Simulated scan of single mutants.
Amino acid sequence: MMRFCDITLSLPVMVMALGVAVALGPSLRSAVIAMVVAWWPGFARIARAEMRTVITSPYVEAARVLGAGRWRLMLRHVLPNSLDGVYVQATLEIGGATLIMAGLSFVGAGAQPPSAEWGAMVETGSRYLTSAWWISVVPGLLITITALAFALSGDSLRNRNHPDATLA
């Protein structure tokens, strides 16, 4: 399974998302499915690494010695203590997901009119850049601010949960 994740991670996220969205047809649903297909391997690797760390913890060994079964160990001890890294990664990736969704809508593979989507608004306004530049600039700024806000909040969450972590 991890080898398949490695193969999937070797492809650029935007290219994979664009390929899946185009194959499924232009809609918000296909764009969301494309995002899930493009991003699940990163989350799978993080969850696996966290679980491998937690499973060797003394409290899990103690629960095993006291007779806890595999399912109880997994559901009660390992899984809840392994999700911290996944939460942080999800918060960090929301900004990137916003950019990818806007990009898919900009090229016509995402949400279609009359759905209000920032990428589609930027594309519509690109025809009027010389006379009404704000039609494209305002949604573009909102995309940027949203992506930056989620990236900073994810970084803050990571620093709060892992104070020894540095910016990568």
Results as ranks from 00 to 15, higher is better:
residue 118 W to G: 07
residue 168 A to M: 06
residue 95 G to S: 02
residue 121 M to I: 04
residue 59 Y to H: 15
residue 61 E to L: 13
residue 142 L to D: 05
residue 29 R to D: 12
residue 85 G to F: 02
residue 45 R to G: 05
residue 6 D to Y: 00
residue 126 S to W: 06
residue 61 E to H: 05
residue 138 V to W: 12
residue 119 G to R: 04
residue 163 P to T: 13
residue 107 V to D: 03
residue 40 W to Q: 06
residue 34 A to K: 10
residue 35 M to T: 10
residue 21 A to F: 07
residue 10 S to C: 09
residue 29 R to C: 02
residue 82 S to M: 00
residue 90 A to M: 13
residue 133 W to H: 13
residue 16 M to L: 15
residue 104 L to M: 10
residue 139 P to S: 09
residue 143 I to D: 05
residue 167 L to A: 13
residue 45 R to W: 01
residue 124 T to G: 11
residue 65 V to A: 13
residue 78 V to M: 07
residue 66 L to K: 14
residue 149 A to C: 12
residue 120 A to C: 00
residue 61 E to Q: 12
residue 89 Q to N: 08
residue 134 W to Q: 15
residue 92 L to P: 05
residue 97 A to D: 05
residue 5 C to K: 01
residue 19 G to Q: 06
residue 147 A to D: 08
residue 62 A to V: 14
residue 129 L to C: 06
residue 130 T to Q: 14
residue 43 F to S: 12
residue 127 R to V: 06
residue 162 H to R: 15
residue 1 M to C: 03
residue 81 N to G: 04
residue 87 Y to G: 11
residue 69 G to F: 02
residue 44 A to Y: 07
residue 32 V to C: 08
residue 86 V to H: 05
residue 28 L to Q: 09
residue 7 I to F: 10
residue 53 T to R: 09
residue 2 M to Y: 04
residue 31 A to C: 05
residue 103 G to I: 02
residue 10 S to D: 04
residue 42 G to M: 13
residue 92 L to K: 06
residue 59 Y to K: 12
residue 52 R to K: 11
residue 156 S to R: 12
residue 153 S to K: 03
residue 107 V to G: 04
residue 123 E to T: 06
residue 79 L to N: 08
residue 51 M to G: 05
residue 138 V to R: 09
residue 103 G to L: 04
residue 163 P to Y: 11
residue 35 M to V: 15
residue 93 E to D: 14
residue 66 L to S: 15
residue 38 A to F: 05
residue 138 V to F: 14
residue 167 L to G: 11
residue 72 R to W: 00
residue 18 L to T: 14
residue 84 D to N: 14
residue 16 M to D: 03
residue 33 I to N: 10
residue 54 V to Y: 00
residue 40 W to G: 05
residue 47 A to R: 00
residue 94 I to G: 02
residue 26 P to T: 10
residue 15 V to P: 03
residue 76 R to W: 09
residue 37 V to N: 08
residue 88 V to I: 15
residue 5 C to H: 04
residue 55 I to C: 09
residue 145 I to M: 12
residue 155 D to F: 01
residue 38 A to P: 08
residue 137 V to G: 08
residue 34 A to D: 08
residue 90 A to C: 12
residue 90 A to E: 09
residue 148 L to V: 14
residue 60 V to R: 04
residue 93 E to A: 14
residue 48 R to C: 00
residue 62 A to Y: 02
residue 72 R to A: 07
residue 122 V to F: 08
residue 121 M to S: 09
residue 150 F to N: 11
residue 116 A to N: 09
residue 165 A to L: 15
residue 61 E to P: 05
residue 78 V to S: 08
residue 37 V to S: 09
residue 46 I to D: 07
residue 44 A to G: 01
